[in-house]
Design a protein around this nucleic acid. Structure first.
Lengths: 140, 140
DNA sequence: TTTGCTGCAAATCCTTTGCAGAGGT
DNA sequence: ACCTCTGCAAAGGATTTGCAGCAAA
């Protein structure tokens, strides 16, 4: 992927701006809808291409954990996420476990440890409230 | 997904047996190939349906972290994995960080924390050796 | 006998790609 | 002017699903 000098196109700039505006970790398709309000003729292909490039250069983060579709994060600094099991909402958590975790497993593997992907799973406050009103029927 | 009483079909049994034989965390397609040697007429659809059911009932684990395709783990007990960045091989690690990690973030979120997905990334011994002989060209 | 499961094939969903023309630098 | 980027549309790969017949219980 030896990329030459990047150009700052209108599309690339707007994609980054829109992604930086939110903390909702939208999917490519959701970003497409957001950007389309400002650039109605942009194509989904361009969205995908730019999200790929922006995450390669480290300006954004591609989140591939635990969902069938990719989500993107406008923040690239050290933080992790928690996903709601009911509504699939993904929220930032600023607890820094980073290097510590990696150190803890170095004795337990013969791999050279480079890093990790961590995502918590839970129920968000909204869905907790709904559950109180109308609990989800679990088999059994 | 309120499922009724499950039947133990020949297909379901063989899929589980084959998955339990290996510690390689195969994809659906790889499991298809393994099972086909014993049940040549089985279909990929049946493989997918059964892997889904078996992971719902907790007999196996569906691994969705950090790869474009799902992998499956015949062990359902508490352990995590490390993935090789070069060859994508996925290996078990038996360091138990489970409950401890969840406790550490309970103060930092208003979600009800249920658990987490954790996957380490590194370079496996094989690929380390290869790198020593012929280092991978990185852009620059 | 009941009804969950199977094989088959088509459908679906997300993502990537080829191409000719547009637009940054 | 050069060469990366874009829009369009088609391709791609993994997974899901409808259906009629099959087979556990």
């Amino acid at each position: 992927m030896n990329r030459a000098i990047l150009r700052i196109t209108r599309q690339r700039r707007v994609i980054l701006e829109e992604l930086r505006k939110v903390d909702t970790h939208p999917s490519a398709d959701e970003i497409y809808e957001m950007v389309r309000k400002r650039l109605p003729r942009i194509s989904l292909g361009t969205i995908y291409r730019n999200l790929e490039i922006l995450s390669e250069t480290g300006e954004i983060q591609k989140l591939e954990t635990g969902s069938h579709l990719k989500r993107f994060d406008g923040r690239a600094d050290d933080h992790c996420h928690i996903r709601c099991r009911r509504c699939d909402r993904l929220v930032d958590i600023f607890v820094h476990l980073g290097a510590e975790l990696d150190d803890r497993i170095r004795g337990a593997t013969d791999f050279a440890v480079l890093g990790h992907k961590l995502e918590f799973v839970g129920i968000c406050p909204n869905c907790q409230d709904q559950a109180a009103e109308a609990p989800i029927a679990t088999a059994g």
